[in-house]
């Protein structure tokens, strides 16, 4: 298949493209999910985390 002699290699070739497509489809379906209502709480949580991260980064 596809000029490839070994079936397991043709399979790998197809799986590479299929898994990239899986990523593509998943991303499109989930594009707006995961932001959610918890945004406010997360903002506060992140601000705290980020502050510390900036301090650490600052030291670098």
């Amino acid at each position: 298949m596809l000029g490839i002699s070994d079936l397991s290699i043709s399979l790998a070739y197809i799986l590479c493209i299929a898994s990239a497509l899986l990523c593509l489809i998943y991303g499109i379906i989930m594009w707006n999910k995961g932001g959610g209502d918890a945004e406010e709480i997360e903002m506060a949580e992140e601000a705290k985390w980020q502050e510390k991260e900036n301090i650490i980064d600052g030291k670098l």
């Binding site: 898994s19 990239a20 899986l22 990523c23 593509l24 489809i25 998943y26 991303g27 499109i28 989930m30 594009w31 707006n32 999910k33 995961g34 932001g35 959610g36 945004e39 997360e42 992140e46």
Partner: peptide, 16 residues
């Protein structure tokens, strides 16, 4: 990363 949404959106571009 800021939220799960950013992870979701990074998946298609990362895969390609």
């Amino acid at each position: 990363v800021k939220s799960d949404r950013e992870l979701n959106r990074a998946i298609p571009i990362g895969g390609m």
